[in-house]
Simulated assay, not measured.
Amino acid sequence: MTTHLQDDRAPAAALLSLARALLDTASLTRVVPDRMRVAPVEPLPPGDLRALHGALARVTDALRLPGLDVVPDTGGLSAVELCVSRRLGLDRHSLDGCAGRLEDAVEPARAGFPGPAVVVPSYDGVPLRCWSRGPVNRPAVAIVNACGMPAGMTAAWVAALSSSYRVVTWESRGLFAVDDGTGPGELGGWSLDVQASDLLAVLDGFGIRRAHALGLCGGAAVALAAAAGSDRITSLSLWHGDYELHGEAPKTAHQQDVAALLAMVARGRRQATEMYRLMRRPATLDGLRPDLAHYLIHPYATPELLYRYGLLNGAIMSADCHRFLVAEQPALVVTSETDTTAHPAGSKFVAARLPRAELRTMPDGDHLTAFDAGPALVALARDFLRGVTAPDRRDT
């Protein structure tokens, strides 16, 4: 009987895993203008390929996602298509799973984070795709993600904090498709101040008066700007921040290279299209962490996204952060000596200038480790949050 139960559950587990992977890559499949091709991880007979194509269509239809074309192998696939293929991990087990009961997988998959977005208009009317998790009567934590990254990048932090806090987050303006897959929403403005105001608009959208802002990478600069301009941000934690300090802190080679790329593609759509042709090559994935590649490549997925990313993230990386260092809220600034993406000297400078900041330099961990929300980082965040949240600081 045990064997029978295991065999019976295997297709259901495979189907749920596939549904989650399809939703996890939906930011890409919804925003690319052409139907995306995906390849299995192992060669399959032609009959199995045709069956997998039909079965996959059944699942994407149930999830209300764009359809995918299953091709025999990865030859000729773009970097984005390779990312999606690797995340889906299609094989013979996928075909078995697709034969299962869709209702057993679709709703559980959609119920997980990020799940369906709540669309909140920012102050200039630009729609923001937002999420909220956790008890509504608990202090609020607004997670400010790195510019251009899908909400899934914050999933570990949401899971770690939403049992004790009301956690909200959103995706960068103008870089993500509406749910019907008609392309990215309108961009509107793109300055750092505009992006900081999006944080307050998200709080308004969920009826939240005040919140702790947890900023990651360039999101740290956005959180810092919001805190400098509004006492609705009651405290800050800034994780591996990327700050422009006009020569008062060194930058890594990565920061310099990305800043140059963004400045180039922000000049116009022609320049963005030329760079996109290079970045769609599979070699683009060589330096990306495999489990995060489908997130990291999002702002490079189309020429239009790359152009807008140049404007948005370029504004973050070039805005002088000195003027925000007057923020008087309690702040935790976290970095690592082994971060070769955002130079730790920037975080040290910010921590030394903020009136009420404490610096924690972790002994190990690279830049992307901050998004993993490992036990040591979560313990640090929770300890700080306990000290800065109190019963009189309820979020609504």
Rank of each mutant, 00 (worst) to 15 (best):
A327C: 06
G188S: 13
L15R: 04
L28D: 02
L15N: 01
V167R: 02
S162R: 01
R86N: 08
A201C: 07
A39H: 02
F113A: 03
A327F: 05
H212D: 02
A79C: 12
T234P: 03
A390F: 04
G54P: 00
R37M: 03
F324V: 09
S78M: 09
A146S: 13
M1C: 00
R269A: 05
D96A: 12
K251W: 14
G207M: 11
G181D: 05
W239H: 05
C321A: 15
V32R: 03
S163M: 01
A140C: 09
A156R: 09
R308P: 11
T273L: 09
A342T: 15
L90T: 01
D34A: 11
L377K: 10
R353M: 11
T154G: 02
L65Q: 10
Y309F: 13
P108R: 02
A315D: 10
L224V: 10
W170E: 07
A26V: 00
N145Q: 13
S318W: 07
C147H: 12
V167G: 01
A272V: 06
S85R: 01
Q271T: 07
P45G: 01
K348R: 14
P355A: 03
E81L: 08
S27R: 06
D104F: 07
L128K: 05
A327P: 05
V32N: 00
R138D: 14
Y300D: 11
L90I: 02
L192W: 10
A253I: 10
E358Y: 10
A319F: 10
Y309N: 11
L214P: 03
L68F: 06
H4K: 05
A21Q: 05
L90W: 02
L128M: 07
G207I: 12
E274W: 14
A342K: 07
D231C: 02
A259K: 14
I208V: 15
A62V: 12
L199F: 04
A201K: 06
R353A: 12
P184D: 07
M362A: 08
G112P: 00
G241C: 09
V158C: 04
D286G: 13
T302G: 10
L65D: 07
L292A: 08
W131Q: 14
V334P: 08
L175G: 01
T29I: 05
R277Q: 13
S235E: 10
A177D: 08
T60W: 11
L23C: 05
G268I: 13
T169H: 00
A105P: 11
A223Y: 06
G185E: 15
R101K: 00
R129H: 15
L216D: 05
P116I: 04
